[in-house]
Design a protein around this nucleic acid. Structure first.
Lengths: 352, 352
DNA sequence: CTGTTAGCGCTTTCAG
DNA sequence: CTGAAAGCGCTAACAG
């Protein structure tokens, strides 16, 4: 096999304990000894074996990210932010994709029983309390993004406010019959039973009420997940009504874009016939000239990863809850004016 | 600590070797003994410790994916395909993002010295021979996607043909001054020194030649990487010429979309003033109504992962090289006709 | 078929 | 400060 700590010890004429101390450069070792050991390491080309290390330490120096990977560009953007920070901090990034809420517990279970990760980032949901307890027992910090969980380090936006912003925008445009396309999950994403889409709906309702517009329950359509197909289906449902809405707020850009397709397919135009507002500001949104509420997605990921890295370094966090700002991005739809709009910068541009 | 193999052995009244055999259910153990052990396992809630296992086996039951993650939707799509298969096969998915070719060797180095992965998938490049040798020595299979490497399991498309398809399409439309926007890397992605973008250029040149059109070297513009900004810059360069091209073939959709933005920004239209063809057929392409050459991205990932899983199961591969088909997807640009086009189905739709 | 015995390579007490 | 020794929990020979 490869060169081990024993070889180094022998070569340096010290005990393996000393070598261990040197490579973990924490403990006190006399400068001379250290130098000798370092020389031996250098000369032998010694590399500590991570697996042995893991077994001893009961940790693997890698962090897990839980997300419904295949579903949403939003989550991919968050992941990108996470990756930036994590890899720089020298951790491995293990990605767990969860297709359905049902699979979530299974994945969490495996994750707890499996290789012990150093930390976990949950995207768009918070693990249930009994899982959190176990993570705590194993001393595995958990950070949550896109979801505000009391008592847990969370990076999030004010989705209620976001829902208000979107709806207010439509109200200001003069719309009164405003529909909401919500992402619907079978069960809540966290103990509180609320999730971003639900908070956005709350904001939507608040805005309507503030404007003195009575909310019509049938104008709230639920679609399973954030795909274009779902958005299109929801929109179709709305357009087939005898009294279709004049404006639609969708819980995500993907849903909104699906809705937009549907609108165009019926020969209608955005915003001429139906006004549309999305949520997230994914890259696609700029291309489709979709008006939307922008979340700082990559930043969310970066901050979450930074918080985790800090936690792992035993540094205390200044704040458990970090709220990030939302921005309403108003664009003119492609349907309204020929040509691709590029008046508004695409979300966070890729930095070189 | 948790319950170990010793506890199980004691409870079942057998030796740890037997327990080990049972949990690795490979060897011959008498049915009764097995039943007793299984009962003890069940009763004690025993879970094998992956880290101890790793150390013993010198393997970690996880596969690494190397890609330039932040850069391209194409690679994310491939990753999605990989994830589907890998997680189902019970492996962990470790993502390594490589921002620049220079970092590549560093990552490979760490990967070889670090936790031993069971297998590796390289997206859009092939590790150099000396790395491959080391992987071979460690018995870590390597599969390559989006790149054809002799002697290595590769999933790929015929990029030369793709380049030809795109260019022929433009030629058939009557264009003669056709530019090519290439992704340029500082150095080749593999021993052969060719990479998808270069092969596409080759196809471009072949098509021109076959049509009796003399290629003009200055119409080939190189841009670093696959971002919209790069595409826009390249397009700007082309449009500022006294004799701009009437058509442009870009090495990727991202580059093409950047080009499209630039074209629109100058008040020109696609394809009216400048015809445009991209490559990949990422989801954005459908929205921008971009004509493009479609690659089966997710399938690429799935096949690569399947090949790797097979290799890890010591099953021989039927074929080392798997070529996947390309499709020319013709769309009308948003600039040509108002309204979002949805005549052509978006690439692979997300399955429920 | 099955128990025993060595490791795997490192971390971490625990005495010096 | 440093060496020796005891694991970490499991796999894999090796004798029965």
């Amino acid at each position: 096999m490869a060169v081990t700590i024993y070889d180094v010890a022998k070569a340096a004429g010290v005990g393996i304990g000393t070598v261990s101390r040197v490579i973990n450069d924490s403990d006190r070792v006399s400068p001379e000894t250290r130098a000798r050991v370092l020389a031996a390491i250098e000369q032998l080309g010694y590399k500590p074996n991570p697996m042995a290390r893991n077994l001893s330490r009961q940790r693997v120096r890698s962090i897990g990210v839980l997300l419904s990977f295949l579903t949403s560009p939003f989550q991919v953007a968050v992941l990108q932010g996470i990756e930036q920070v994590i890899s720089k901090a020298g951790y491995e990034l293990v990605v767990y994709s969860i297709e359905s809420p049902e699979r979530r517990d299974l994945v969490l279970e495996n994750l707890l029983e499996g290789l012990r990760l150093d930390g976990v980032i949950a995207v768009s949901f918070a693990p249930e309390e009994h899982f959190l307890q176990r993570f705590r027992r194993y001393q595995i910090p958990v950070v949550v993004t896109d979801y505000h969980q009391e008592g847990l380090p969370s990076i999030f936006v004010d989705n209620v406010r976001g829902g208000r912003m979107a709806t207010q925008h439509l109200l200001e445009l003069g719309h009164r019959r405003i529909a909401y396309i919500q992402d619907h999950f079978q069960r809540p994403n966290g103990p509180q039973g609320n999730w971003p889409g639900q908070d956005r709906r709350l904001g939507y309702l608040q805005a309507l009420e503030a404007a003195g517009v009575e909310a019509e329950p049938s104008l709230i359509v639920e679609s399973q997940g954030h795909t274009r197909a779902r958005g299109a289906a929801a929109m179709a449902q709305l357009l087939e009504r005898p009294d279709p809405p004049t404006a639609v707020f969708a819980a995500s850009d993907m849903l909104a874009l699906g809705a937009m397709e549907q609108i165009h397919q019926r020969g209608l135009r955005v915003p001429g016939d139906v006004a549309l507002v999305g949520f997230d500001d994914i890259e696609l949104a700029a291309f489709a000239a979709l008006t939307t509420v922008r979340q700082p997605m990559r930043r969310m990921g970066r901050l979450a990863a930074q918080a985790l890295v800090q936690l792992l370094a035993k540094e205390p966090l200044e704040t458990l809850a970090q709220e990030l700002p939302l921005t309403l991005v108003v664009r003119e739809s492609c349907g309204a004016k020929a040509g691709l709009q590029s008046g508004v910068a695409p979300s966070e541009s890729t930095h070189p």
